[in-house]
């Protein structure tokens, strides 16, 4: 049943297009600032499109010894990869066991997870607890303590509970043990939830700012988010020295913009390929939220 395209459709398409633009324009604008010549910026001559296009700011940001962006990117990548693997393993295996009726204490354990999730201990007790466990200046602080996010544990558990009971029963009849049931039967059929928790955890670790800021003090261990926030928002105003290279002015504005672009690039590049999983993941999470 086809209807004519009316005024509403046109306006609606227009609104939605604007909404779509609003989602990417800030990134585009930041990029334009990064490639603009500082002398136009400082006078307020750049409204949206770049002036004096050049890539000096990126070169500067990459080569500045004080602004260790590559260390930040490398660290964040390591933490994200390790952290994602560990959190998927821990979340999945915990959720799996907690859905097995044979385990008697599963309600107690789950209640404790939920309780500590709803009742927030706060940053200070967490800081004191983790530091007494030796997590100061220790890269594992990015990987171990938050490996099990209770929200994802709930989602995973709900998903596994939705699996037909016959799956396991048939396997037991065949003489399989718990390890082989998990690896041969459950994991293959629950790939969507694994992809989901992997992606959510991965993004969360990459984007973490407060945790590394509280625990990772040594320059060599800092994440990209810390490195970025310190120069763009913090008071560390001396990291970027205003200079003129080949007649191009570099000032705080275009250098900071270049740093922002580099910090978000991995997410933006990966996004088109994984956004499908994100969408599914959100739905899995909400079906039996």
């Amino acid at each position: 049943m086809r209807r004519r395209i009316g005024a509403f459709d046109i306006i609606n398409t227009l609104i939605l297009s604007i909404v779509g633009l609003v989602c990417i324009v800030p990134f585009l604008y930041t990029f334009f600032i990064a490639i603009s010549d500082g002398k136009f910026l400082i006078r307020g001559d750049v409204s949206f499109f770049p002036k004096g296009v050049n890539l000096q700011s990126f070169i500067y940001v990459f080569t500045n010894p004080r602004f260790d962006i590559m260390t930040g990117v490398r660290n964040s990548a390591i933490y994200t990869i390790l952290g994602t693997i560990v959190s998927v393993l821990l979340t999945y295996s915990t959720a799996y066991v907690l859905t097995r009726p044979r385990i008697k204490c599963r309600y107690l354990i789950m209640s404790l997870f939920v309780l500590t999730w709803v009742f927030d201990a706060g940053m200070i007790p967490r800081y004191i607890a983790y530091s007494s466990l030796g997590f100061i200046d220790n890269i594992w602080v990015m990987i171990i303590p938050d490996a099990i996010n209770t929200q994802y544990l709930i989602i995973t558990k709900a998903y596994l509970e939705g699996m037909p009971k016959e799956l396991e029963e048939a396997a037991i009849v065949d003489g399989a043990n718990d390890f082989s049931i998990l690896s041969k039967i459950f994991i293959p059929v629950t790939k969507p939830i694994i992809a989901t928790i992997a992606l959510f955890n991965g993004v969360a670790i990459w984007n973490q700012y407060l945790v590394p800021q509280m625990f990772l003090k040594t320059k060599e261990l800092k994440t990209i988010q810390q490195v970025l926030a310190n120069v763009t928002i913090g008071t560390e105003g001396t990291t970027f020295a205003n200079t003129i290279i080949n007649g191009i002015s570099l000032n705080q504005q275009n250098m900071k913009a270049a740093a922002i672009i580099i910090a978000m690039l991995p997410i933006v590049i990966a996004y088109p390929f994984v956004q499908k999983y994100f969408r599914n993941g959100i739905l899995i999470g909400s079906v039996k939220g």
Partner: peptide, 23 residues
């Protein structure tokens, strides 16, 4: 086998979720 699988989860619960509450 299930308890082995559960162990890391319980350790993480005690050390990283309950311990801060105690703090």
């Amino acid at each position: 086998r299930l308890y082995v699988l559960l162990l890391p989860g319980v350790v993480s619960l005690v050390l990283f979720k309950l311990f801060p509450v105690a703090g």
